[in-house]
Amino acid sequence: MNEYEEQAVSYIMEGKCEKVGFGSYRLGELNALDALYALSILNLLDINFKDESTVAYLKSLQNIYGSYSIIYSTFYGGIPTHENT
């Protein structure tokens, strides 16, 4: 992994919420889009990272066809936010 990839992974992991998900503001507040992007980037960088609670949360937001409601994909910063439970 090169220096930039290491920095990206470090930044992503700093945004990991305590119990579930990721948030870009480091406040421990889950943000669906941040979580989706974080897992996607870690996967693209071939990082062996498992977070079943975040995967379950994201799956709970999907419709029956596997896509997400327009409300989860149109707002910058991601909707919904969720208490870190």
Rank of each mutant, 00 (worst) to 15 (best):
M1L: 08
M1A: 13
N2K: 11
N2S: 13
N2W: 01
N2P: 03
E3N: 09
Y4G: 02
E5W: 01
E6Y: 03
A8Q: 10
V9G: 04
V9W: 08
S10Q: 14
S10C: 03
Y11W: 14
I12W: 06
I12C: 06
I12K: 05
M13A: 02
E14G: 01
K16F: 02
E18G: 02
E18H: 07
K19M: 04
V20R: 15
V20P: 00
V20I: 15
V20F: 00
G21H: 10
F22T: 08
G23F: 05
S24R: 12
Y25Q: 08
R26Q: 11
L27A: 02
L27E: 15
L27M: 08
G28T: 05
E29H: 01
E29K: 11
L30P: 01
L30M: 10
L30D: 00
L30V: 15
L30Q: 01
N31L: 04
N31S: 15
L33D: 13
D34H: 10
D34Q: 11
A35V: 06
A35L: 02
A38Y: 07
A38G: 03
A38I: 07
A38F: 04
L39H: 07
S40G: 11
L42D: 09
L42C: 05
N43R: 14
L44P: 00
L45W: 09
D46Y: 02
I47C: 12
N48A: 13
N48E: 15
F49I: 01
D51R: 06
D51C: 05
T54E: 08
T54W: 08
Y57Q: 03
Y57M: 12
L58I: 09
S60R: 08
S60C: 05
L61K: 07
Q62G: 00
Q62M: 10
Q62W: 01
N63L: 13
Y65I: 03
Y65F: 12
G66V: 04
S67A: 06
Y68F: 15
Y68I: 05
I70Y: 07
I71N: 10
S73M: 11
S73H: 00
F75E: 10
F75Y: 11
F75Q: 10
F75I: 11
Y76H: 07
Y76Q: 12
Y76P: 10
Y76T: 10
G77S: 07
G77T: 10
P80Y: 07
P80I: 05
T81M: 08
H82N: 10
H82L: 10
H82Y: 12
T85E: 12
